[in-house]
């Protein structure tokens, strides 16, 4: 890392860091500086969870995701649940009914067959719950020590059911921001079993299929402007991505943001901010204010979004500032910028 004295834009780091996978600013840097220039095409440049394609008059959504979580089994699920629900949810975020999944496995030599069975069975159950068949796949094995037990990549195809375009470009000043339930459960469930941090308690990952909640909104005719599942980097990273893509100012109220007592306890103990902790079964919805109450009633009727609440609003971006921004009104009435996290959020002592 050279000392930066010249005003040229920062060079990309010479080496990949763990933080590049954290879903925050460094992940975005990779996308903007390496992948997008190389693969330039309109579908990718939408920077949305899934790409939209039209094939012979049918509007399709396609997405892919890789899963490298450790440990493979954690309170509330396995890497298999994440692999199915994560990709199904990305399709749902495009307003698309999930139709089929592929599953690519990279297995490490020496992996216990029982572990593989457990993971595959949880994939089977999650796929059944989501009514989505796993129609194709592939398996490779790497030398012992070259993998982490199991890596899984899943891709998904869906049929776009939503009438209008769903994405940051459809978000308007005056829209409200809803979240589908309490935040941080997945990230804390993983941390609770990570070496060096063990703590006990009723932590359970929130991994779940979100399509039923999205489908309920669509079939009720709610005009959805944008959807985003709140995975790596948590609510804050998702809001920052949407605010900057839409060039708007999203303001959320800390007092309205739902966080369970268990997640709060863990975050206080480890010095973490729940707004940056990962979820695997939660999403944000941007809709017109007039639809807010009706949408909340519809969401709360679905088990996966029974805890839905409004957490904020979208405002015009005042003055000459073009780039979007997210601000938070704190519990005591003060304000702060809710910034994109750089790298992974690490437990702190001070």
């Amino acid at each position: 890392m050279p000392t930066f004295t010249c005003p040229l834009p920062l060079p990309t780091r010479e080496r990949i860091l763990l933080a590049h996978g954290g879903g925050g600013r460094l992940t975005n840097q990779l996308l903007e500086e390496i992948f997008l220039p190389a693969f330039a095409n309109t579908a990718l440049e939408a920077r949305h969870d899934g790409a939209l394609l039209s094939v012979g008059g049918a509007r399709l959504a396609m997405t892919t995701d890789s899963y490298v979580v450790q440990p493979l089994v954690f309170p509330g699920g396995t890497i298999g649940d994440l692999a199915v629900n994560g990709t199904v949810n990305d399709l749902a975020m495009c307003g698309a009914r999930p139709m089929a999944l592929s599953a690519g496995f990279i297995l490490e030599e020496g992996l216990a067959m029982d572990t593989l069975r457990q993971v595959v069975f949880s994939m089977r159950d999650a796929a059944m719950m989501a009514h989505v068949p796993i129609v194709t796949g592939d398996t490779k094995v790497v030398d012992k020590g070259k993998g982490d037990g199991i890596f899984i990549n899943t891709s998904g195809i869906g049929v776009v059911v939503a009438p209008g375009p769903i994405g940051p470009q459809s978000v308007r000043a005056g829209d409200v921001v809803l979240v589908s339930g309490d935040l941080g459960a997945h990230g804390i469930a993983i941390l609770s079993v990570r070496e060096g941090l063990q703590f006990e308690g009723p932590m359970l990952s929130d991994t779940a299929c979100l399509w039923p909640a999205v489908e309920a909104l669509l079939s009720a005719g709610i005009e959805i402007h944008c959807l985003r599942d709140l995975t790596r980097g948590g609510l804050s990273s998702a809001l920052n991505e949407i605010a900057s893509a839409a060039g708007l100012h999203i303001m959320v109220q800390e007092a309205l943001i739902p966080v369970s007592a268990v997640v709060r306890g863990a975050c206080e103990l480890l010095g973490l901010d729940p707004l940056y902790v990962a979820n695997e079964g939660r999403f944000a919805v941007f809709i017109a204010e007039k639809d807010a109450d009706r949408a909340l009633t519809i969401l709360r009727a679905q088990s996966v979004s029974a805890g839905a609440v409004q957490v904020g609003m979208v405002h015009e971006r005042k003055s000459d500032r073009s780039s979007g921004i997210v601000t938070l009104r704190s519990r005591i009435g003060g304000h702060r910028v809710l910034d994109m996290m750089s790298g992974e959020q690490l437990p702190r002592i001070c």
Partner: peptide, 12 residues
């Protein structure tokens, strides 16, 4: 500072 009092300062 303008960030904190947005254009339509709706405070639900």
């Amino acid at each position: 500072a303008d960030l904190y009092m947005p254009v339509a300062a709706a405070n639900p």
